[in-house]
């Protein structure tokens, strides 16, 4: 149970970063931390105490395997997270070129 709550703590750390930081790069890092907390939660869903990694080698000893489906999900989600982060960083760099700053308060020409 402690591990699950640590995931939640990590999620909150990321959210805190996104909400309070003003540097765009730090906002991106906050989002990445939130994503990773969810990935850890997904991996934990499939974990079974004392079970083996789900690989067929021909001479397995354990009777139980951990659930491989969340692992596949996490791999896919990592790829997607990579794409979003690359996109965000590219946009952040472009903004830096245009505005000369990473400060989100100074990038406010549009009014919500």
């Amino acid at each position: 149970m402690i591990v699950y709550s640590l995931c939640f703590v990590l999620f909150m750390v990321g959210l805190y970063g996104v909400v309070t930081r003003r540097n765009m790069i730090k906002i991106v890092i906050g989002l990445a931390i939130m994503e990773i907390s969810i990935f850890m939660f997904l991996v934990l869903i499939g974990y079974i105490q004392g079970a083996e990694a789900p690989i067929i080698t021909g001479h397995e000893t354990a009777v139980q395997f951990v659930d491989p489906l969340p692992q596949a999900m996490v791999l896919t989600a990592i790829v997607i997270g990579l794409a979003t982060n690359a996109m965000l960083l590219a946009i952040a760099i472009r903004i830096y070129k245009n505005y000369g700053t990473f400060d989100i308060r100074k990038v406010n020409e549009l009014k919500g």
């Binding site: 765009m24 979003t84 996109m87 965000l88 946009i91 952040a92 472009r94 903004i95 245009n98 505005y99 990038v107 406010n108 020409e109 549009l110």
Partner: peptide, 11 residues
């Protein structure tokens, strides 16, 4: 400028 800012917010 505007497009980049809107895209960042959206993302």
């Amino acid at each position: 400028r505007n497009q980049l800012e809107a895209s960042f917010k959206y993302q």
